[in-house]
Computed example of a mutant assay.
Amino acid sequence: MPEQPSPSAYHLLLQLEQQFDTLINTIETAVSLFERQQPASWVFHQATPARHWLREALFDMWHEQDQDGRETRNYIAIVAANDELLAAVDTVNQAKKSFAELLQHIKQAFPQTLSDAKSRLPQRHPYVDEALRRNGLARLHLKQSWRQLPIAQAPVSRVRFAWYSSGRSIKRLSVQEAEQKLLKLDTDAAHIRIQLRKLASIPSGEVLAQVQTQAPLMRANLFFTEPLDDGHTRRALNAAMPIFVPDNDQRLPHINLPALQPPTTRTRARRRDEKLEPDVFLPSLRVYRYR
């Protein structure tokens, strides 16, 4: 018989279910308003967007079968929104933020209850149940459930999309931290022993870099019709979700047509001051030495 959550954890689960209901309801409100208004919209490589494309995008919060949990599905689009629709989308973002904060609190305070919460939430709304049955979707995808919907700060004259395919995240590691990570691997393997010896040959105070190459993503440059209060005339942001630009006449800004697929080779010149050595130092950890 599965272990029952403590009273405190159970109370948080009830709060989470309520927050999830609120999130679903705010999405339904925004999507229904969009479908009634039918504002001007541009959807990446769709000459005539389907009537319910935004509903599918905003309610897509589930892992597909065999999906890598680190991956998210993207919905690249622009919507020319009036004040009423912008307010509805902002309410969705507030609900997403509250839901994410409560999930994070549960993860830290009662990590063992998180899987229980994820199995209960899909049963909270008829639309979700229908989606699960129709598409064979499984678990709640946390990243897709809480990611924000971009809202432009002011009217936009044009949007320039471009693939960004050379991104990477770099985490600094000490020699001791790298050693602990290697020791958690198969230390009987020859390639791990070789890397441990390489690590032992460098100064113990040296700082290393662990590199994670990021998946290609679409970036959008928004050019405002007038400078913002801080003087900026444009803003760059990731375009994983539909971008809502304010326009009470609901007219789209000028939008370029980016390539359907990201480039297969690097398009930006390497920085001359790139600080990492070109060859990986500890392949099993993707760790490099600084020059």
Rank of each mutant, 00 (worst) to 15 (best):
V31F: 00
K181N: 14
L183S: 05
V156Y: 11
A259E: 14
S98G: 11
D273M: 10
E28I: 09
F223M: 13
S284M: 09
Q176F: 11
L285K: 06
L228S: 02
P155K: 00
Y164P: 05
A215S: 09
L14A: 11
A95N: 00
A178V: 00
I27P: 04
L132W: 11
Q94N: 07
A77K: 01
N93P: 00
R139I: 07
K107H: 11
Q153D: 10
P5F: 00
P216G: 01
A87Y: 05
Q4E: 15
P7M: 03
Q214L: 15
V43L: 11
R70C: 03
T187Q: 08
A154W: 07
V43Q: 07
N221A: 14
T187M: 05
D186M: 08
S201R: 09
T187C: 08
D273Q: 15
K96Q: 10
E179L: 06
L217W: 12
A209S: 03
N248A: 14
D249W: 08
N135F: 12
R286G: 10
D129M: 14
V280R: 03
Q261H: 15
N25Q: 13
R55Q: 07
Q38G: 05
A209D: 05
T225A: 11
A117D: 00
P263M: 06
W163N: 02
R134Y: 10
L13R: 05
L276P: 06
Q4D: 14
L185G: 07
A100E: 02
V43D: 04
T213W: 08
L103T: 03
H105M: 08
S166V: 08
P122A: 01
L85I: 01
I78T: 04
M241V: 07
Y164A: 14
D116M: 15
S145W: 06
F244D: 03
G69Q: 12
Q38S: 10
A200R: 07
A190Q: 12
Y75F: 15
T26A: 10
P111I: 03
S169C: 06
F161D: 04
A189N: 09
R272L: 13
A50K: 15
A9D: 05
P227M: 03
E84W: 09
R36A: 10
S201T: 06
Y10I: 14
S169D: 09
Q261T: 14
Q123D: 15
L149T: 05
V159C: 05
W53Q: 04
A88T: 03
A57G: 05
R235F: 15
E277M: 13
L237M: 08
W146A: 06
G69W: 09
S284D: 14
F281V: 04
N256W: 07
W146C: 06
V128M: 13
Y164Q: 14
V89E: 01
